[in-house]
Structure formats: structure tokens, C-alpha cells
Nucleic acid binder design. Structure first.
Length: 990
RNA sequence: GCUGAAGUGGUGGAACUGGUAGACACGCAGGACUUAAAAUCCUGUUCGCCCUAAAGCGAGUGCGGGUUCGAUUCCCGCCUUCAGUACCA
């Protein structure tokens, strides 16, 4: 039989499922290898061809590692909490669990169709209560923990309580909110239980805090920073505004430095690490205090608000260039800064208030779009520069952000471009501070040269000056060296239904954890998936949903990233009811050796996961500091759209009888499409025939009408056409006509008898008719072909447009491969004869190549080499078991079904190929005696000459120069120099 | 603006430490088989020039320079595309 992919694939998919071929257990006799895919959100649309790209690559690698003797954990599951199912629930009233279940079923079918070697016994779903029980449990551990900077790790809250009892806040070095109290042990002891809880909340790693959040009114929920793009929600594109709310947060900032340092030890793509570094945004600098000048002379004449000023009032600024402090010519506060109202003088009050009002009106978008101009207002107040006592005016401006640093900056116009623009605009001094500074047209942030106009650092260089200024500030108590991070604590609440309930209840306004024995806290039933009338989240609708029938539960749910921040541990022990995973299993599987997924998760999932992992390690639950040792981003698969070009008839009728004719509907019902290359000129093709046909049709419909003009308009407007009825850019005209009623009578102006479509690369989406579904392709070519074709398309990490054009080539390859084992009549025939040298060479060439390629994740090149090997063996008419059996093993990771079938036909026990061993490469078979040297003259290859590899360079040179063909290129001249690289090349310089 | 990645035939791409640019496919053209089509097989296919053909000549990896006997690969400057980020003090 010819290659019957359908029956073969169905047979083996069934076999694997029946026999649980890929089920894996801890096995200390074998080295472990953990291959993980980023698990999908099961959306209603199902998989398109872009999704499986990473899964295919990881499956190839997992199968390869099995053949290499590793115990491979290769699981799959679903990130099944999320917005789309909830939106659907709001629209239809259908419970999101039902939608999710149906979508998962569809995903599972599609995944099964591709022949992945997942261990489905370890499937996880973040929305299932026996999973989210442990998400809630981890939340509780975070609530019961604080970050001790002295030990540089998270500790149980009891060690903090002990510290407060014995020492108060003395010697306490903790990550906390800003408003913690300084306490003596006696103060702590005197606290009521509630006061203690309120204070502890400021230290807990998950805590409740009033925060400015990204509120999306259309979605009725809060979004994380990475869920907001340009002021709009990433999902749905609804406007997002800033709003203050009580929110659960995660103190990820405690881990900022470890998250940054950890990047040095993991094998991730550099761009991705760079994104995380930028996101963490470490800046090394100093805090500097500027005291406020007491408004002495003005006091009497001002209103009472000015009297609130105290000399003890300070403005703190953060700077990364403390060395430039002598160049400060003004301070700038964010308009939202709390001191603004206090320090503004009566004379400036109106101007300041007008400016604040104006900034509030500016939307986030406007502020971002306009980075070239600056604006601000003077408060009328002055501060004192701590290094030289200079009087510095205080301004407000919206280029200073309230949320970063202290919300105040010291402006050094000579070194900072925004300060420079601001100084120019408002006529403030621009002071040169380094002799190397070039600042005629713009600020010069150089660190070169020696300081000038800079008091006690004049003449010093950058390094010396920085150290000296910091030392001076510390001595004066006016500043200190400090490291700042851009990253903020992560908001951890969503005003949504379809997520994990937070295991917290409230007593007298304070949050408490529910009892661990009550986990999981089940998601309650609600009548509608919308906020309540009073604006509470959907959980507020749950009837009689109270802790111990008494206390209010937390009504917000966890964000999408909660469940995905630890799921790789659950795969190790998916069914465990007593722990999120058994300790021994965690000790065996440790971490993910290879993680494949998209780079869009750079600052979301991949950062939060590293954070939770570090936390779990601090508390001793897991063993590794970093969860994902090696990570690969598969490139995005873009869509490739096809276009047809529509033109129309121009008909002009004789005036007398135009009323009887419905011209516009005739034109609409007879659309005309022009092949791509004829749009501008379609004469001499079949225009005349088309025209004739249409004219006949028109005349038979309206026999008495006199036509003045009847012609096809030049040009054509592009219209998206479904790529599934286009092959190699040639339109299937019959399918096109059948696709829509209005196209039923379509006419085509063809080139060479074909309709050629235009093409363009765009996002893959339904509206562009360019979605290609893997099911259609497996139906037509089989999963093995699709797997290999997706790899053949190009390097895994590169983004590329999907184009089905080349799939035939891969399909042909598999048929050719199949034929190696069969005679002309498709009888299975292999010979037990000893292989020839040429056959062994072809085999070992591919063994070497495939191994090297897989190890460096270059799957596209190994597909090419399989083709070469099969072409060679076909030419050699090789059907020897000794060669073909190894070839079957080599190909198995790529095309598991056909290789299982052939493995069995070769007489091996069914299903054993997955755990066979990868063929051993023997370099002896590739040893050559001769090498065909390319002979180049002045770097241009002119001819080839074969010499023994053992031949010495000097002898080669002699022979080459004596050669007739070479002599011709020398044109009688003497060679200046002859380069002979043994086994590579000969180059003659004339 | 900043950060990162990438520019190679009609198309996807290959060339791993500087050593025969265009492997392997797709497409296209021609041919064989066939009543015909499909399938399959064979030949050609970077571009330009010359030519009946054989052969030959020249150019060529985004652009302009450089290093080298030799550069798709290394260095300098520029252009374009894609992704991330955005007043971060």
C-alpha cells in the first residue's frame, strides 16, 4: 500500500492513548529532563497553525531526549481562568465553566491529532478546584510571610512578630510599606490585636493597600500594567483610567535585585532578558534632601496657609547623577506631589491651580504623545541646595511622574535634556559643570572631563566627585546613596467572576486568612456575571456566601497570572491532595530544563513565575532559585492574506428606455475580477470574451434596450479572499463562485488561463480570511507532514508568515521515505544484506547532522538533511535493514506516526520505538581519502582539483600550478602568493 | 527617542569557528508516461551579456567604506523592516 497516513496516524494515536505510552514516573536510575510548553488559554476559536509551532518543537525535543535515555517529563494543561469565557457568560448567561470545558475538549482533540507525546495523566487546569486550592494555599503562604533584607529572603511572619516583641523595629531590616511605625517592644506589646494586624499588613508579601490602579470601566475591572497598552486594555481595546482603590498587591519589589541578578544564570534569549531588566529598571544613585527656605519676609503679608511651613520640611529627590548637584538651577515636583499645596505662595496659587487642572485634563495618551515640549508653573517657593546653600526655585511640571522615585527631581539643565528645555522655556540658568560639556544646543550628559563651577569637587573626575558628594551628604545628614527600581508591586485583585477566590475574610475591616482546612474556597454560584448594583464585583451577588456565616469574604478574584505562576510544579504531581507537589518529586524533577513559548509573556508570566519560585524556595518548598533553565521563544506565525481585484462594468444606455432597466443590480450581480498582473492592462487577454458574454446576458435580459456604451472599467480594487480556496496564489474559481451568492455569476479576466491572487503579510485573523486551521491540513496531508512542514518553514525563533505553498514538498518526502521500505507494488521489502560504504556514509552523515541540529534547536535544517538522506538512499536503491532501521529512529521525533508503523513492520514490538536508543554516530564512515579542492585565483573559484587529504601543502601547490586549467587563469604571470588550507581551499594571488 | 532582532534568487530558507554563496524545498519552464487528467519520474532555473549549442565573460548576500590571500560571516558609518519600551530623574 502507498503511504496511508490517515489510518497509520489514527492507529498509533489510539495505541499511545490505550497504552499510556508517554506516562512517566520519577525514576532515579535515569537522568531527568523536563520539557515544558507555555500552556494555552483554551479560547473558543481553537488552534490555528501558529499555536502548534512551539508544541511541535518541544515534542521533537522531548522524543529526542527519550531516545537519548532521559526520563522525560512532557506535560500539557490549560490556563483556563480568563476573560473571554466570562465575557461570553455575560452575553449568554452560560456558566464560564461550561464554555471552558467545551473549549478544552476541542483543544484536546486538535492536540491529539498532531501526535504529541504528552503525559496526559498529569494534565492541569487552573480553573479546577483541586488545582486552585493550591494557588490559594500559596497566596496564604505569601500572606504569612515578610521579606527580611538582612537574610535576603522571605521568612514566616512569626519571625517578624518575634522581632517586634523582642526588639521592636530596632535593627529591623524589612521590605514594607512607607508608613510603618517606629516601635519599641513595649509599644508592640501595648498594641491591641487589631492594631498588630494592621501593622503586620504593611510587611506581608501579599497585602491590602490603597493603590492607584488601571481601571477599565468597560470591562469593569482592574488591569495589570502589562495588560494595558497605550492607555487601552490589551484585550478588547477599551479605554483605561487611573483610579484609587483598595487592592490586594504582591510585594514583588522585595525580589527586584534577585530577579535582576538571576537573569545572569539562565539561558534565555538576550532580548527577553533585556526586557525584564528594563522592566525592573534598576538605577543606582542617591537620595538628596533639599530643605525649604522659610518664607521670612513674606510671612506677615501672606495668608495663614503659608504659616504651616516648617524649616524641618524637606524635599527629597532621587538622582542618578549626584555629581551634577552644583548644576542644579531649580527643583521640579510632580503636580500631584503632596507638598505642592503647602509651599505655593499666595501670589502663585492661581497659576499653580490652573496648571494642575490642565494636567488632570490631559489624558495619559496626550502626555505620552507629546514628549518634545515641556510645561510647568512656579510655586513661588525656594529650596536650599545642601552642598552650597544656593537658593533654588521650586516648580511643578508634568514631566515629573508622581509614581517614580520621590515624585521630585533636582533639575540640572546642562546635563538633562528635559531640564534643558524647561530652563530655556522659563529662562532659568543653565550652569556648566564639566569642562568637557558641549551644551550650546542641547544638554550634554557626559561624564568626561573635570568639574567646574562645582565647589569642593572642582577639578575632580566623575568617580571621585560622586564619592565625595555622597560622603559629604551623608555627613551632613542630607542624603545617602540609594538604588531605585522602576518595577512596582503587582496588583493582585480583579473585579471579576472567573478567577480564583481570594481565601480571605474581613473582621472589623481587617483581612484574615480562612482556615487552611477549608481550602479550596470554592467559586460560588451567581445569578449574573456582572457587578452588583452597588458596584461590587460579581462575587457580591453570591447568596449566603459568608465565612462561618458571619464574615464577608474578599469579593475580588485573583488575576490571570496567579494560576500560571507555579503550574510547572503541579505537573510533577498533578493529583496530590496533600501538597501542591510531593517533596521527593520536586527534588527529582527540580526545574524546567527547556521551556518554549512566546515572548509576549516577558514581563508578565515569566517575571511573576520567577518571583513565586524564589518565594517558594525561600520557604523551603522547592529547591531551585530559577524555575526555567533554558527558554526559547518561538516566532509568531503571521497570516498571509490573499486578494482578488474587483472591477465592474460601465454601461451607458440610450436615454429613451433607461427606466425599464435595473442597471445597478445587473452590475452588482455580475462582478468582474481581474488577475493580479493585469490590473493596469488587461487588453489582449480574455477581456473581449468576458465582455461578449456579459453583453449577451444583458441583451437577453433587456432585449429592447439600446446600449450606448458597454465596457469593463480599468483597474481593480483589492478584496480579501479566503486563503483556503487559493493554492500557490492561484484562485480556485469554482470554490470562489460557490463561496458567496453575489459571486455566483462572477467573470474573470485571466492570465495564462489562471486567476493569480495578490498576497500580503498581516496578522492572522478571521476578518482577513487568512486563518489556516491545522485540522484541514492534517486531514489532507497528515500530522507527520504538518509537523515537519512547520519545522521546515524556517528557524524556530524567527517570526514568519504562514504559507502552505511548500507543504507538498514535505509530503512528497514522506512518501519517498515510505517507498524506501517497499517495492514497486508497495510490498514491504527490506534486505538483511550488509550495507555498502556509500549507504553507511549517507546514514552517518544524517546521524551527525540531526544530533547537532536538535541540540541547537535548528529543526528546519535537519528536515532538509532528511530529504537529502532519503534522496541519496533512493538513488542507491538502498532497502537494507541495517540502514533503514536507524533512519526510522532518527526521523521518529519529527514524524512519530509513520516511524512507529515502520518500526513495527521491521519486526520490533509495537510502541517500543519511543524508548529505543538514538543511533550512535561513527565518524569512521565519513572519513575521506581525497578532497576536491576549490582552486580560486584572486578569491574567485575557477576550478576544482582532487588531492589526497594526506598530501602536504607544498606538494599541492606544485601540482596546482602545473595544472593546465590553472595555467590558463594565470595568463603566464607568476603567482605572488599561493595559500593552501589543507582540506579546505587553494587560493592563488596574482 | 531608547533597547533588541533581522535584511541573501520569483518564494520559504541554507552556508555552524572568515574558505566553492544560493543546499533543501516551493514555484516556474521543458520533457517522459497517459485517450486525458491526477499522481510519478527526468532536465533546467541568481541576474546580465554572448551564443544554434558547447563553452565563456561580468555582476551579485540592504547601501557606502575598511581589515584580509579570501567577507553573507569581522570592524566603522548609514538606510529599511519587525518587536519591546516610552518624559524613569
Amino acid at each position: 500500500m502507498d503511504y496511508q497516513f490517515k489510518s497509520i496516524e489514527a492507529k498509533w494515536q489510539n495505541f499511545w492513548a490505550q497504552n499510556q505510552t508517554y506516562k512517566v514516573e520519577t525514576d532515579t536510575t535515569k537522568p531527568k529532563y523536563y520539557v515544558l510548553d507555555m500552556f494555552p488559554y483554551p479560547s473558543g476559536a481553537g488552534l490555528h497553525v501558529g499555536h502548534p509551532l512551539g508544541y511541535i518543537a518541544s515534542d521533537i525535543f522531548a522524543r529526542y531526549k527519550r531516545l537519548k535515555g532521559f526520563n522525560v517529563l512532557h506535560p500539557m494543561g490549560y490556563d483556563s481562568f480568563g476573560l473571554p469565557a466570562e465575557q461570553y457568560a455575560i452575553q449568554t448567561g452560560q456558566h464560564p465553566a461550561i464554555t471552558t470545558e467545551a473549549n478544552i475538549k476541542r483543544y484536546r482533540e486538535q492536540l491529539d491529532n498532531l501526535g504529541f507525546s504528552f503525559d496526559w495523566s498529569k494534565e492541569v487546569r487552573t480553573s479546577s478546584p483541586d488545582y486552585y486550592k493550591w494557588t490559594q494555599w500559596i497566596f496564604m503562604q505569601l500572606f504569612n510571610a515578610w521579606y527580611n533584607k538582612s537574610t535576603d529572603k522571605a521568612e514566616h511572619i512569626s519571625t517578624l512578630i518575634h522581632h517586634l516583641e523582642t526588639q521592636g523595629t530596632a535593627n529591623l531590616n524589612a521590605v514594607s510599606d512607607d508608613d510603618t511605625q517606629k516601635l519599641l517592644p513595649t509599644d508592640w506589646a501595648a498594641f491591641s490585636e487589631e492594631e498588630k494586624q494592621a501593622e503586620l499588613l504593611k510587611y506581608r508579601l501579599t497585602f491590602l493597600k490603597e493603590s492607584t490602579v488601571n481601571w477599565c470601566p468597560a470591562l469593569g475591572t482592574v488591569l495589570a500594567n502589562d495588560e494595558v497598552k497605550d492607555g487601552f486594555s490589551e484585550r478588547g481595546g477599551h479605554p483605561v483610567e487611573q483610579k484609587k482603590m483598595m487592592q490586594w498587591s504582591m510585594r514583588i519589589t522585595a525580589y527586584a535585585e534577585r530577579l535582576l541578578q538571576g537573569l545572569n544564570d539562565i539561558d534565555w534569549p538576550e532580548p527577553l532578558k533585556e526586557m525584564q531588566r528594563n522592566w525592573i529598571g534598576k538605577s543606582v544613585g542617591a537620595m538628596v534632601k533639599f530643605s525649604l527656605e522659610r518664607p521670612t519676609s513674606e510671612v506677615g503679608s501672606q495668608d495663614s496657609s503659608d504659616l504651616r511651613l516648617r524649616t524641618s520640611d524637606l524635599i527629597e529627590v532621587f538622582t542618578t547623577r549626584v555629581d551634577t548637584i552644583f548644576g542644579v538651577s531649580f527643583l521640579v515636583l510632580a503636580p500631584e506631589h503632596e507638598l505642592v499645596a503647602q509651599i505655593t505662595t499666595a501670589a502663585q496659587k492661581a497659576e499653580i491651580e490652573a496648571y494642575i487642572a490642565q494636567t488632570k485634563k490631559k489624558s495619559e495618551l496626550d502626555r505620552m504623545a507629546d514628549t518634545k515640549t515641556v510645561s510647568g508653573a512656579f510655586t513661588g517657593a525656594y529650596a536650599i541646595n545642601p552642598v552650597d546653600g544656593a537658593r533654588v526655585p521650586i516648580w511643578i511640571a508634568d514631566y515629573v511622574l508622581a509614581g517614580y522615585g520621590t515624585g521630585a527631581v533636582m533639575a540640572v539643565p546642562s546635563g538633562d535634556q528635559r531640564d534643558y528645555l524647561f530652563a530655556q522655556q522659563y529662562n532659568l540658568p543653565i550652569i556648566q559643570i564639566l569642562d568637557a560639556q558641549q551644551m550650546e544646543n542641547e544638554a550634554d550628559p557626559t561624564k568626561e572631563g573635570q568639574y567646574v563651577n562645582s565647589g569642593f569637587i572642582n577639578g575632580l573626575n566623575y568617580k571621585e566627585a560622586t564619592a565625595k558628594v555622597i560622603a559629604f551628604l551623608e555627613q551632613e545628614g542630607m542624603g545617602y546613596a540609594k538604588i531605585n527600581y522602576r518595577m512596582r508591586d503587582a496588583i493582585f485583585g480583579r473585579q471579576r467572576y472567573w478567577g480564583e477566590p481570594v481565601p480571605v475574610y474581613f473582621k472589623n475591616g481587617l483581612p484574615y486568612l480562612i482556615d487552611e482546612s477549608e481550602l479550596p474556597l470554592m467559586l460560588p454560584e451567581v445569578d449574573k456575571y456582572l457587578p452588583t448594583e452597588s458596584g461590587e464585583p460579581p462575587l457580591g451577588r453570591a447568596k449566603d456566601w459568608k465565612y462561618k456565616d458571619e464574615y464577608e469574604y474578599e469579593l475580588s478574584t485573583m488575576p490571570g497570572w496567579a494560576g500560571s505562576s507555579w503550574y510547572w510544579y503541579r505537573y510533577m504531581d498533578a493529583k496530590n491532595e496533600n501538597a501542591f507537589a510531593d517533596k521527593d518529586k520536586i527534588a527529582y524533577w527540580k526545574d524546567v530544563d527547556l521551556y518554549i513559548g512566546g515572548s509576549e509573556h516577558a514581563t508578565g508570566h515569566l517575571l511573576y513565575s520567577r518571583f513565586w519560585n524564589k518565594f517558594l524556595k525561600d520557604l523551603g518548598y522547592v529547591t531551585e532559585e530559577e524555575p526555567f533553565k533554558k527558554l526559547i521563544n518561538q516566532g509568531m506565525i503571521q497570516g498571509r492574506s490573499n486578494f482578488v481585484y474587483r472591477t465592474r462594468l460601465d454601461i451607458i444606455l440610450d436615454l429613451s428606455n433607461r427606466d425599464e432597466v435595473d442597471l445597478s443590480s445587473f452590475v452588482a450581480n455580475n462582478p468582474i475580477f481581474v488577475s493580479k498582473n493585469l490590473i493596469n492592462n488587461y487588453q489582449n487577454y480574455n477581456e473581449e470574451n468576458v465582455l461578449k458574454r456579459l453583453r449577451q446576458k444583458f441583451e437577453s435580459a433587456y432585449p429592447n434596450v439600446i446600449i450606448a456604451k458597454f465596457e469593463i472599467r480599468k483597474g481593480g480594487a483589492p478584496i480579501h479572499v479566503d486563503v483556503n480556496i487559493v493554492e500557490n496564489d492561484i484562485l480556485n474559481i469554482n470554490e470562489f463562485k460557490a463561496s458567496r451568492d453575489e459571486y455566483a455569476n462572477a467573470e474573470f479576466i485571466l492570465e495564462s488561463g489562471k486567476y493569480i491572487c495578490g498576497a500580503e503579510v498581516e496578522k492572522m485573523s478571521k476578518s482577513k480570511f487568512n486563518v489556516v486551521n491545522p485540522d484541514d491540513l492534517t486531514e489532507r496531508y497528515g500530522a507527520d507532514t504538518l509537523r515537519m512542514y512547520e519545522m521546515f518553514l524556517g528557524p524556530l525563533e524567527q517570526s514568519k508568515p504562514w504559507n502552505t505553498n511548500g507543504i507538498e514538498g514535505v509530503f512528497k518526502f514522506l512518501r519517498k521515505f515510505w517507498k524506501l521500505f517497499h517495492d514497486e507494488a508497495f510490498n514491504f521489502v527490506v534486505s538483511d544484506e550488509a550495507p555498502t560504504k556509500a549507504e553507511l556514509k549517507a546514514l552517518h552523515k544524517i546521524i551527525k547532522k540531526v544530533e547537532e541540529d536538535i541540540e541547537r534547536f535548528s529543526f528546519n535544517t535537519s528536515v532538509s538533511c532528511f530529504m537529502i538522506a532519503v534522496n541519496e538512499l533512493t538513488d542507491l536503491k538502498c532497502n537494507k535493514r541495517a540502514i533503514l532501521q536507524d533512519l526510522v529512529l532518527l526521523l521518529h521525533p519529527y514524524a512519530p506516526h509513520v516511524t512507529e508503523e515502520l518500526w513495527a513492520l521491521l519486526g520490533n514490538a509495537a510502541g517500543t520505538i519511543s524508548y529505543a536508543s538514538f543511533p550512535k554516530f561513527n565518524p569512521e564512515y565519513l572519513v575521506e581519502n581525497d578532497f576536491n579542492y576549490p582552486i580560486s585565483v584572486n578569491g574567485k573559484t575557477r576550478t576544482n582539483l582532487s588531492f589526497p587529504l594526506s598530501m602536504e601543502a607544498a606538494d599541492i601547490e606544485k601540482e596546482v600550478l602545473a595544472n593546465e586549467a590553472v595555467q590558463k587563469y594565470l595568463e603566464g604571470k607568476l603567482p605572488k602568493k599561493v595559500i593552501v588550507v589543507k582540506g579546505r581551499i587553494v587560493n592563488i594571488v596574482v
